[in-house]
């Protein structure tokens, strides 16, 4: 019994210590603002790695999710004779929820795990250490550009996801199932508000991007520098990011759309 309590205590201490380490790590990363001349090319390179290279998976998923929404929405709404409302349904679901959330999940799986593995491997092969010994702070040189890149790329990806999804929904709803195009867009436009829906979705994706990138670089930086350690850190990145995104989504939705 006492052993169990001790184990619980140990676990709690480990979690708190890890949270503290990651917070201090974040402070260290954010404190060192790299000079624009060296920092900008590094940032561009990382936006390419985490953003542009994630584009394909985001576009394809967005297209299919939009098409599925169109199909499902049509079969349900047609029972009430209001299939013209699928435009509004697709747009609201995508812009408010699926755009930011699914993009963040894909981002964690595609870019987050790659970031963790890359940084973990740099640690295992002593590249971070040797950088430190050359008088270069790896937090600024390696970690900061990756963190900022995730922060910047994520909203862009989420926006593209939503647009492609709306287009996919239109493809199914209008071109295939024959919903009148005017009422498709009209319903959508009268129910989607730019500030309340689109911008809130963007804010969500900014938060998700930051959290996913933070978890990914921290797990890489903090991993045990062995092959087993890197693989477990990569798994942790995907699991923690997904949980954090879904949990935060609830909190953000409650704050933004719940009137209380």
């Amino acid at each position: 019994m006492l052993d169990r309590i001790a184990a619980l205590g140990r676990l709690t201490l480990a979690v708190v210590a890890s949270l503290g380490r990651s917070g201090r790590f974040l402070a260290g990363v954010l404190a060192g603002v790299p000079s624009p001349s060296t920092g900008f090319p590094l940032l561009v390179r990382q936006i390419y790695a985490v953003g542009v290279l994630s584009l394909a998976i985001v576009v394809v998923s967005g297209l299919f999710i939009g098409m599925v929404l169109g199909l499902q929405g049509y079969t349900i709404l047609t029972d009430y004779g209001s299939e013209a409302a699928i435009g509004q349904m697709i747009a609201l679901t995508l812009v408010r929820e699926l755009g930011p959330v699914v993009t963040a999940l894909l981002f964690a799986g595609r870019a987050g795990s790659a970031l963790t593995a890359e940084i973990g491997l740099m640690k295992a092969t002593e590249q971070l250490s040797s950088m430190e010994m050359m008088g270069v702070d790896p937090l600024r040189r390696v970690i900061a550009p990756r963190l900022w890149a995730g922060f910047i790329a994520m909203p862009v990806l989420a926006l593209i996801f939503s647009v492609v999804g709306v287009w996919g929904g239109m493809l199914v709803g209008v071109d295939w199932l024959g919903v009148y195009e005017g009422s498709f867009w009209g319903n959508m436009q009268s129910s989607v508000d730019f500030m309340d829906d689109v911008m809130n979705g963007v804010i969500k994706s900014v938060v998700f991007g930051f959290v996913c990138a933070w978890i990914a670089v921290y797990q890489g930086y903090d991993c045990v520098p062995t092959s087993a350690g890197i693989s477990s850190a990569t798994t942790k990145t995907v699991v923690y990011s997904s949980l954090a995104v879904l949990g935060l989504d609830f909190v953000l939705t409650a704050v933004m759309f719940g009137d209380f």
Binding site: T125, E126, S130
Partner: peptide, 28 residues
Amino acid sequence: YALRERMGMLFQSGALFTDLSVYENVAF
């Protein structure tokens, strides 16, 4: 960090930056 600029260290694994060429590694 200023002191470390006066030190060089050769790591066991070499610790070259794998995404840079030999030239860029030395130029780093």
